[in-house]
Design a binder for these strands. Structure first.
Lengths: 204, 204
DNA sequence: GTTACCGAGTTGCAAAAGCAACCTGGTAAC
DNA sequence: GTTACCAGGTTGCTTTTGCAACTCGGTAAC
């Protein structure tokens, strides 16, 4: 079940975590622009080149958590069970994310996660780079759906829907409500949105 | 005052400590011969070749603490203040060691130190290697004292005296007495021994 | 307006570590 | 007695890291 990780792999993972943790905690404490990558490297007890070997840019120190979900939509479509419509598979996957209160869905009220969201959306360069991530995700999804314009159009709509759903959830959380409390509405919203999307698919 | 240690040096020191600590604690728990170097490497999260890069033999995993004192006698003689006799300098240094309850003097009743002594003297290969360390120390001291036979003879006596003094202290500790309680006797013994040694020097 | 500094990111090289496979001597099984 | 295994220690090669010095764009001082 568990891959037999050697010392090398284990230490790499630990280094990566040390860097990411140091970065996030410094960013949350002082703000993105008030922390230099050298500060982070020092806090993680790592040299600057090593830091950049793990994370290509300063922004990625924050956004790697989103990066982990990169291409997920495309994967969900690619690995769906035969007979399942792409939209249905994506719907199901998003629904599962809500049930697990995954941060990407916006439906998570842990203080750290809330602070993290505030950091990302309150820092222009981060929000900007996040858009780029989403565009990449969209491209991959488009390719998985349909090589033509139809794929591109549908992918754009799917990503847009997911973004709106996450943002809606997040705003309710930011207003002080609990994730558990918001959950039913989030599910209803998702059902509504994906149903519309399904109809759009048929129309195209 | 403090050398500016870089990341490299800091991590090396940490690795070395991790290996040494893992080794000692395993040895104390199960006995020297019941622990393989692979066990130690695994416990320290280090590969076997790395372990041997830090410690040339299994014995050195235990004895590096003595190794830290290697050449100390020679150094004390070499760096003594002008006008001080070699024996006087060595006497003074041993006395200072007693006052600090340094483990090398045998005058230390911390449970870990006691267990450590028991480990060393209860394991033949360790005791054997320890002798070799003392011989090296003796050679260095001989060179520092006098290049001829006189140096060799005197060095041998100094080392022998230190060994007997340490062993005497250690036996009293092993019998259950406290280091603080034994201290005056230890000082008296040392004064006696080094006084004899001083007279011997004049005779030669 | 140029000069100096700072922070992001890069480059080339040397040190350290991991890994797998090996050698050697001892000892237990058969 | 030979065969197999185990533990101590080694070897060659690769990956990872540190380090110092660099580029480049921005910005503050003068």
């Amino acid at each position: 079940m568990s891959e037999p990780v050697g010392l090398r792999a284990r230490k790499k993972a630990r280094t990566r975590d040390a860097i990411a943790d140091a970065a996030i905690s410094l960013f949350l404490a002082r703000g993105f622009d008030q922390v230099s990558v050298s500060d982070i490297a020092a806090a993680a007890e790592v040299s600057k080149p090593t830091l950049f070997r793990y994370f290509p840019t300063k922004e990625d120190l924050v956004l790697h958590r989103f990066a982990d979900h990169n291409g997920e939509a495309a994967r969900v479509v690619g690995e769906r069970r035969p007979g399942t419509a792409p939209i249905a598979a994506l719907h199901q996957h998003f629904r599962a994310g809500l049930d697990r209160f995954e941060p990407v869905t916006g439906l998570n009220d842990h203080p750290e996660v809330v602070a993290f969201h505030r950091l990302v959306f309150g820092t222009p360069s981060l929000a900007g780079r996040l858009l780029q991530y989403m565009r990449d995700d969209e491209d991959a999804l488009a390719a998985a759906l349909d090589p033509g314009v139809r794929g591109r159009l549908l992918a754009a709509q799917v990503i847009a829907v997911q973004r709106v759903l996450a943002r809606t959830n997040w705003q309710k959380i930011a207003a002080g409500r609990t994730a558990r409390d918001v959950h039913p509405e989030a599910v209803a919203d998702a059902d509504l949105a994906f149903a519309q999307l399904g109809r759009a698919t048929n129309h195209l």
